[in-house]
């Protein structure tokens, strides 16, 4: 990885972590646009259900309770998980490409040699 790229990765990750730590302290507790709209309609009342238990519901660590610090840890964890998933998936996807490029080169080299002989 080139130094410039490494700098982008380091700076960008730092910015994301800063936002993640600050988010629970700064974020509004008001319902979002969709929730506010739903509150206005009886047809949407009590319709919400949970199809699955999440390990960190509502962006908090259950063992630490629901406070800003618990939220900050949960959001930082989420930010790092997201970063690792994206890097892992895309490096994995392009690793296949590199390998096939290499084997093409090897093939081309091989045909060169056979031409010579």
């Amino acid at each position: 990885m080139k130094a410039r790229t490494r700098k982008i990765l380091a700076f960008g990750t730092l910015m994301a972590i800063i936002i993640a730590v600050a988010a629970p302290f700064l974020a509004s507790d008001n319902p979002d646009g969709l929730e506010s709209t739903a509150e206005d309609f009886e047809s949407a009342d009590d319709k919400e259900s949970q199809a699955h238990d999440s390990p960190m519901p509502d962006y908090s660590i259950p063992a630490l309770g629901e406070n800003e610090y618990s939220g900050a840890i949960a959001i930082v964890l989420g930010t790092v998980i997201t970063l690792l998933i994206v890097l892992g998936l895309f490096y994995g996807l392009t690793a296949g490409k590199k390998r096939s490029n290499k084997s093409e080169k090897v093939k081309a080299k091989g045909s060169d040699e056979s031409n010579r002989s």
Binding site: M1, T5, R6, I8, L9, G12, T13, M15, A16, I17, I19, A20, A23, I75, G78, T79, V80, T82, L83, I85, V86, L87, F90
Partner: peptide
């Protein structure tokens, strides 16, 4: 790496 950083920033 740019995509990784963007994803992390979007999540946060």
């Amino acid at each position: 790496p740019i995509l990784g950083v963007l994803a992390a920033a979007i999540f946060a």
